[in-house]
Simulated scan of single mutants.
Amino acid sequence: MLTLKRKTRSEAIFDFLNVVGMALICFVTIYPIWYVLVNSFNDGTDAMRGGIYWWPRQFSLDNFGAVFRSEGIMMAMGVTVAKTLVGTVAHVFFTAMVAYAFSRRGLIGGKIYILIGTVTLFFGGGLIPTYLLIRDLHLLDNFLVYIIPVLFSFFDLIIFMTFFREIPEGLEEAARIDGANDWSIFLRIVLPVSMPVLATIALFHGVYQWNDYFTGMIYINNTDLQPIQTYLYRVVAESSSNQMMAAVPGGVTRSVTSQSIKLATMVVTTAPIVFVYPFLQKYFVKGMMIGSIKG
């Protein structure tokens, strides 16, 4: 018969401190998000008095109404959705294609390519050379600036390559006997059996594309091509109430202030990824474990 071992006093104190510490960390992490959410649903004029910490004092949807009446935010949301979908599909396919070639042990110069790629993980050209390159490629104020510069990632290649090398060679040999070429093997055999790693890399890059504001801020001057995160950056950066209200044409009431619009915009721009992430979080953990063990 099993008997439960009672905890010593020191173990009980250690567990208690762990629980308290984790509770504090969770509170410090979650409360700022809750504070923004509560104030975004509060009347803007009333919120200026302060003292709102846990629940809206005067519940109001005027802030969100003002945000959604802005043509700019809907255009920015469309750009973000488009670049996330197109960029993720293109990145996953291109990186997987290169990784499949790198995973073949007979690749001529493969070790040299790996060495060159490894260097890029630690050193970059810098912002100014990158800007000049983007300009010379005529990608300024071009939707493709969200796609082409991040079409390939050597870090993602390593994850792909490790997974591809675990695929039994017998599958490819059988396909070659049946007359399949490299493209057929890659598209019809390698990709279908690699769904776990494809989903992982797609999630990695999709979250990056959704959260990226820097590309739109540096390389895009046309407001019609700026993503939602760059739009949020502009809204938060503007401190003048007149500037803020100019960004929200028509229908603005006295209950809406520049600060309340900022908070509502934060909620609108971050809500989609916040709702999706908990359902896909397991792929982040799985992605870091891919290739670490056989099976």
Rank of each mutant, 00 (worst) to 15 (best):
I185H: 11
K5D: 08
D141K: 07
V207L: 11
P129V: 03
V19C: 08
S194F: 05
V89T: 08
S60T: 07
Y208M: 02
L232E: 07
V150A: 10
T257L: 04
T230S: 14
G106A: 14
L140Y: 08
M288E: 09
Q226N: 10
I293N: 11
L280H: 11
F41M: 14
R176G: 06
G251T: 11
A23H: 07
V248H: 10
I25N: 02
I147R: 02
I293E: 12
G216C: 04
Y146Q: 06
Y53K: 06
F279N: 07
Y113V: 06
D15I: 11
D46P: 00
A180R: 08
D182T: 08
F122V: 10
A202T: 04
G106Y: 13
F102W: 13
Y131N: 07
G216T: 09
M217I: 02
T223C: 00
M195A: 14
T88Y: 07
F16P: 00
S194V: 02
E71I: 08
T270R: 05
I148V: 15
T3F: 10
A76N: 06
R6C: 08
M217S: 09
I293Q: 11
H91S: 08
T45Y: 01
M75T: 14
A47L: 01
A180F: 11
V89H: 09
A76V: 10
P272Q: 14
Y283D: 03
V207F: 06
E166V: 00
I25H: 07
M161C: 06
K282F: 10
M77V: 12
A246C: 00
Y35G: 01
Y208G: 05
M217H: 11
L2F: 04
H205S: 02
V38G: 00
R176D: 10
V86R: 03
A101Y: 07
N222Q: 15
K262W: 02
M289Q: 15
L232Y: 09
L2P: 07
T269M: 08
L191I: 13
G72P: 00
D141H: 03
I13M: 11
S153C: 09
N42Y: 02
I33G: 03
D182A: 12
K111S: 13
P249V: 10
S239C: 00
N181G: 13
N222Y: 05
V79H: 03
M97K: 01
G110I: 05
A76I: 06
I112T: 15
V285N: 05
L24N: 11
Y277W: 02
S260I: 04
K282S: 12
M97N: 05
N242G: 03
V268A: 12
E169A: 14
I73K: 07
R49D: 03
R135M: 12
E166N: 10
N39D: 03
L121K: 07
M1I: 02
W55H: 04
L137N: 02
D224Y: 13
C26Y: 12
S292Q: 12
Y208T: 01
Y100R: 15
V235M: 15
